[in-house]
């Protein structure tokens, strides 16, 4: 009996040893970097290791809000972040509408084609998106050539190296890349709507717009709600790559969002510790936002999404 018990224990330990290397990987790459937050309380200059005489306490958090130039910078970064996230949030219904009207198309081949080609951009990188933008919008690109031959423009307009409507442009690129993909979830949800509801409505003589308004949209609202909540939780995280590739000297003032600012601070001007402080501040606000939205979700739907 004891032998059997020992054997079981041995096996249980042996199995643990099998997964141990992977747990170590997780510990190293997900948990260990957290210790880097300490750098926010030191005056860190790579490549020297941290020592206690470089301890500065909350100096960087003070710097963030004490120096006038810094405040102005931080405010403009926050403005950009809020503007871009705000636009995305305001138009977050777009993929839903995209899915609803796509579903109204009766020709299956056309529908499949549209779905495939609009989903494709989601799988190319932001660098490629930028390359496409550069090709199409540069001074000899398609847009300028067509506009000039039609007489709409006198001389080539430089679209990328300007800060005009940059927030809207960023939203447009994001939509170009993501809308088709985001619509897939709604398309699946539409397919799950009870067929009888729609047949009944048709028998009662409802038009297609009426069916969409009174049946499809209410059925999609729960999905939409989750998406809006997730958007809210990620309000401060617009992502990094999109803004990094599109940034240049002309639009920098309006394109620098928090994620990009954190990077530029550290890699551009060597302010490692300040950068960590800013990103800590962002993380804390994000966790609070996540808790709030999760709470709202619990109130409305009865369960959260974490």
């Amino acid at each position: 009996m004891k032998l059997l018990e020992n054997k079981r224990k041995l096996r249980s330990l042996r199995e643990f040893l099998y997964i141990l290397p992977f747990l170590v990987l997780v510990a190293i790459f997900a948990y260990y970097p957290l210790y880097g937050w300490f750098y926010a309380f030191f005056d860190y200059k790579p490549p020297f290791p941290l020592t206690w005489d470089r301890f500065v306490g909350f100096k960087w958090f003070h710097t963030m809000v004490s120096n006038k130039v810094r405040i102005a910078q931080l405010l403009s970064v926050l403005r950009n972040t809020f503007a871009i996230s705000g636009i995305s949030l305001a138009f977050s219904w777009f993929p839903m509408m995209f899915a609803i009207f796509l579903n109204e198309i009766k020709c299956t081949a056309f529908k499949k084609f549209v779905q495939t080609v609009t989903t494709l951009p989601n799988f190319i990188s932001w660098v490629l998106v930028y390359s496409i933008a550069y090709s199409v919008f540069s001074s000899t690109g398609a847009i300028n050539t067509v506009a000039m031959s039609l007489g709409l423009l006198e001389e080539p307009k430089i679209f990328l190296a300007s800060s005009d409507h940059i927030w809207l442009k960023m939203w447009l690129w994001l939509t170009w890349k993501n809308a088709g993909w985001a619509a897939i979830m709604y398309i699946a949800a539409i397919a799950g709507i009870d067929e009888e509801l729609i047949t009944a409505a048709k028998v009662d003589g409802a038009s297609r717009m009426k069916i969409i308004w009174h049946i499809t949209i209410p059925c999609l609202l729960p999905t939409y709600f989750v998406i809006v909540m997730l958007n809210l939780a990620n309000f401060l995280s617009n992502g990094f790559e999109q803004f990094y590739v599109f940034q240049n000297a002309f639009n920098k003032e309006y394109i620098q969002v928090l994620d990009l600012y954190v990077y530029n601070l550290a890699m551009g001007s060597g302010g490692y510790s300040l950068s960590v402080a800013v990103s800590m501040f962002k993380s804390i606000v994000s966790v609070v936002l996540l808790c709030i939205t999760n709470g709202i979700s619990k109130l409305v739907r009865g369960h959260g999404f974490i």
Binding site: P33, W37, Y39, A266, Y272
Partner: peptide, 13 residues
């Protein structure tokens, strides 16, 4: 959770 770009970079270094 995510430690952020800089702590990650220092870890990798």
């Amino acid at each position: 959770f995510n430690a952020g770009i800089i702590p990650w970079f220092i870890t990798m270094m």
